[in-house]
């Protein structure tokens, strides 16, 4: 108990360097990072000791140590690294292609009211359709290779980016556009100097959502067909009643998604440095 309070107090001193509104409430002192880590430790402990205590068999809920043991076995005998890298690669690739296409189409439609009106009912329909359900179809078309999972990922990433960009293009400040026009900027000039930067916050938000979906796309693609990737390990482990393998694969997928998301947040704070940040 004393330990934590000290750690918290020690932490609050350097934090006070920032000219943030220093809270007078004691609540302010609690560092959420420590609370999060504490929670993690609790969950890990429960995971390790609760299932055996409740007599839950290993193939239903493997304990933490079971999972770690399985992880090193997977590393040694199942070619885990290869599966992991393949999934990571296709997640990033699918994300990059899908968001590029989504952004480009979003900007093009945002610049043409006519085409936006023509295409918007179809975009809405496609947006509502469950994209992962296309996976078997893509396998029928392209066979058991990387193409289907890449396509599912591209498809699933595409829409949130498209919709965010389109929405932002519709709400660009008209007065700002008029100002640019009054300064003799042409259509392209207005786009690059006003519309594009104005929509950047929404684009970044769309990319963040898309990054979390990218992992889902790849996983579904791998679950449905193929013999590589963490998704494949999930279905393979499931077939063998190897719950620890499934757990591990899920965890590693989460790691990939988290890394992508985190990288985007980093880029976002860089790119959007001019937005006033709420002082914490």
């Amino acid at each position: 108990m004393t330990d934590t309070t000290q750690a918290v107090a020690g932490r609050s001193a350097p934090a006070a360097k920032a000219p943030a509104s220093k809270g007078t409430r004691p609540m302010r002192l609690a560092n959420p990072l420590y609370a999060s880590l504490g929670l993690l430790v609790l969950v890990l402990l429960a995971w390790e000791f609760l299932p055996p205590a409740l007599d839950v068999p290993k193939f239903i809920i493997p304990t933490l140590t079971d999972c770690l043991a399985e992880l090193s076995r997977m590393w040694a005998f199942e070619g885990l690294l290869g599966h992991f890298l393949s999934t990571a690669l296709y997640t990033v690739l699918g994300f990059a292609i899908g968001s590029l296409l989504g952004a480009v189409l979003g900007y093009l439609l945002g610049m043409s009211e006519f085409w936006e009106k023509v295409l918007s009912p179809y975009i809405l329909a496609l947006q509502i359709a469950p994209k992962v359900a296309f996976a078997p179809l893509f396998i029928m078309w392209f066979g058991y290779n990387a193409m289907p999972k890449l396509l599912v990922t591209v498809l699933i990433v595409f829409f949130p980016v498209l919709v965010n960009v389109l929405q932002a293009m519709r709400t660009v400040d008209r007065d700002l556009v008029n100002l640019a026009r009054a300064y003799n900027l042409g259509r392209l000039g207005v786009f690059w100097k006003v519309e594009m930067p104005s929509t950047l916050p929404n684009l970044m938000a769309g990319l963040r959502i898309a990054s979390t979906l990218a992992v889902i796309g790849v996983t579904v693609g791998e679950l449905v067909g193929g013999n590589t990737g963490l998704g494949f390990l999930i279905s393979y482990g499931g077939g063998q009643a190897n719950a620890a393998m499934v757990f591990n694969a899920i965890l590693l997928l989460t790691v990939i998604g988290y890394a992508l998301y985190f990288a985007l947040v980093k880029i976002e704070t860089r790119v959007l440095h001019y937005l006033p940040r709420a002082e914490h």
Partner: peptide, 16 residues
């Protein structure tokens, strides 16, 4: 729009 005129509104319209 032409180079002879400059305008300013209630909103400053600075590019953030």
């Amino acid at each position: 729009p032409n180079a002879h005129v400059g305008f300013m509104l209630q909103k400053d319209l600075l590019l953030p």
